[in-house]
Design a protein around this nucleic acid. Sequence first.
DNA 1: TAAATAAGTTAGACTAATCTAACAAATTAA
DNA 2: TTAATTTGTTAGATTAGTCTAACTTATTTA
Lengths: 236, 236
Amino acid sequence: MQLSYTEENYLKALLKVSFDSGSEAVGTNELAISLMVKPATVNDMLKKLKEKGLVDYEKYGKITLSADGKKIATYIIRKHRLWETFLYEKLEFSWDEVHDVAEQLEHIHSQKLVDKLDKFLDFPEYDPHGDPIPNRLGELKVQFKKTLSEVAVGNSCKMVAVKDNSSSFLQYVVQVGLGLNNEINVLSKQEYDAIMVIEVNGQRSSVSQKFADNIFVVCQHCEAGKLCPNERCTFN
Amino acid sequence: MQLSYTEENYLKALLKVSFDSGSEAVGTNELAISLMVKPATVNDMLKKLKEKGLVDYEKYGKITLSADGKKIATYIIRKHRLWETFLYEKLEFSWDEVHDVAEQLEHIHSQKLVDKLDKFLDFPEYDPHGDPIPNRLGELKVQFKKTLSEVAVGNSCKMVAVKDNSSSFLQYVVQVGLGLNNEINVLSKQEYDAIMVIEVNGQRSSVSQKFADNIFVVCQHCEAGKLCPNERCTFN
DNA sequence: TAAATAAGTTAGACTAATCTAACAAATTAA
DNA sequence: TTAATTTGTTAGATTAGTCTAACTTATTTA
């Protein structure tokens, strides 16, 4: 089934929104905001995607991806993250530049291209933002991660990914001296507005709740994909 | 000016048809055949492209690219050929597989991507089919080449490019034992239907006029981009 | 629980890219 | 130099993706 650029984007958005919101079921408005179109437009497209068996959806009900739809959406995520990795690793794009170009490249139709790119990159497991790359079968590593905002004062943690992939956010992250696998010490936290003082490589910065919500971390003793062996770890 | 996928394809086709036909000016029908749409469709698009100042065109007259149009078309060719080179050199695609994927990749919009890809490939001058790759300024190497069908019996020549980039043709070329920079001896030629017997690396094959029309060659003494110093060379 | 608000749907319109069928102009050939 | 043929144009229709404005259903809250 050959889908249009737009249809692919709807499936991808559906997967992403359900990831971010934590719940399988997604609403029309939510999706419209994510895709930057009007709810009416989403409604029209939903009918088409339902017709094609890619979403499960009843009038006035919540939207979920069908098994087929999920497979396709995951494949698009795979392509997106492989391209990001290519741009970053091979073409020396910076962290904050890769997302927008990958948004285009993810829609190239060629199974062979994806497989060969994967091999060329030596089967990477994570993209430059720390997000796991689905494998050929659509499986992806589950990380036991929290957001920085959940870390208690006095604890330290390791940054493993970012939630927001926008250029402006990523540039800010770099400005704070932060990068993947860096250790972060949480020195203090305002009760009123949750502003945190953090320390990274000796550099102290104050960051907002919004900022901390977009940084994913694990306990520095944790290994990716496993529960931390440290009994006192607050991340399990 | 951000052009659509389709508009870009019209400009590219215009450049390609005028290359192939040898004349700047192109007709509606010719273009329609090249793009595999109906003449009426071409006519509609031409009005739009004229509106945007990308083609010069009067009712019932011939079509030519404007300076702006030519620049854009050349840039698309540049992207196409760089991607072909990437697929062939880095991802180990075969000769006949690169074209179709490059047809998609050429429409990715990112100046930075093109420049970085160019650098990554070490500024290649020719693509896997022997076609010259326009540089950043849109300049491209001119080759003093002929088609195999123009070579007289008893002469030998060197294959430098193919005209037809289709998978089926390229597979046939490989089958004949032929590749870029191979020497070809023209052993005989039928007067009636121009069928040629050629020899490549000791392998003899009979090839049709159509085949020979799609193989570009130079005298084996010629250097690309220069007139051959050999006075008896029939290629100058 | 009834009114207010939020969420979702429908009808009707627009644009881009395409088509078919009919028509007009230009070129070629008898 | 007219008729036949080729080439190019126009009008009207279609599909995909989007919109606005008006409407309906569901949820929240006073």
